[in-house]
Design a protein around this nucleic acid. Structure first.
Lengths: 185, 185
DNA sequence: GGCCTTCTGTACTGGCCGGTCCAAATGCTA
DNA sequence: TAGCATTTGGACCGGCCAGTACAGAAGGCC
């Protein structure tokens, strides 16, 4: 819908997306009502519909927001070293635990959205591809430096790694236990 | 609620669960209304509330139903041989494709239910444990016959396998592409 | 200050949905 | 056929929720 043109507008829009992200992470997309979001963000309805055309539109923005969060947190690690990779895995585990075993901020959205509309599903897929590409770069760098087998394809590795993360998150969330994730990673 | 006491009652109850399972698989739990289920099952509301106390109760029955389906399909394979295992993986891939990339019949429920209520989350977790145990038995049998390393723990293997399956399903569904699953398995 | 764009408050609407209720039909047993 | 338990039809209700409408405030620019 409308891009925010003032600084204040930007802040309000961001507050709405953040509130929506938090609630949707906790209760799921369909379990979160517009009014819940508005209450949490201390915003009015007209604000939301000023910046977003629909709930789906807002949900798409939430995907982008969560991707940015994940990628941001990831930046603090040198994923192209074994130690960095391990440290990152540990951080994922720590996050899953401290957030109360609620799963991957992107993965849980992706599953629900895949059943909602092709557009949202595609948006989630795009986020995954983005994420995967950052891993791919790390693996490619490792391969170039001989840290991993020369005939291992970085994009295969990246996809399998991502799948292991998602599978681990999923089981860990269902069981409310860290072990499935520990084992997967 | 009430157990069906006649053959007819059993058939009606089963029809409702089946319809609910199909719809919830396609559209998600929250995306499926009671009335949708009733229309599909050609049943009336009083029938449903005769056999189930609530939508959550019905959803729990759907989890059990899907678990039975998965385990039933799995029975046709000798999972304690490498060839059988591979054949089973192929069947999972084939199923995911032929059903239109809608994900794991249990996994997709599990994610949504984890955000819905502790009770449903626990029910999904139970289904996973059941499933995992069947894999565990297969791996234990393989280990006894020396087909896999003696110091590999069957229950670790089973959990990791399940996680790989779930992660593969998840990415495959988001991308609408079989490759992530192929690579994971 | 005057004017235009951007932003915000809020009441309202139409539709959907889970769940209740009660009356009636159906089948079983004798 | 009577009498009982089981099963079924479907109208109804209260609540929630996405989205709209419209009036008004705030802020920037001259």
């Amino acid at each position: 819908m409308h891009e925010p043109k003032t600084q204040r507008g930007q802040a309000r829009r961001a507050a709405i997306v953040e509130a929506a992200a938090a609630l949707m992470y906790e209760r799921g997309v369909r379990g979160t009502s517009i009014e819940d979001v508005l209450d949490a963000a201390e915003a009015g309805k007209s604000q939301l519909y000023h910046y977003f055309s629909s709930k789906d539109d807002l949900s798409a923005a939430v995907v982008d927001h969560q991707l940015a969060q994940v990628l941001g947190a990831q930046q603090e690690f040198r994923l192209d070293t074994w130690n960095g990779l391990r440290a990152w895995f540990d951080a994922l585990l720590e996050g899953q635990q401290s957030r109360g075993f609620r799963g991957c901020p992107i993965g849980s959205l992706a599953v629900e959205m895949s059943a909602m509309s092709p557009e949202l599903r595609a948006r989630a897929a795009e986020a995954f591809r983005h994420w995967q590409r950052t891993l791919e770069r790390a693996f490619a760098s490792m391969r170039k430096r001989g840290l991993i087998d020369a005939d291992a394809l970085p994009d295969d590795l990246a996809q399998v790694t991502l799948a292991a993360i998602q599978g681990g998150y999923l089981l860990s969330t269902a069981e409310q236990d860290l072990q499935p994730m520990v084992r997967s990673l």
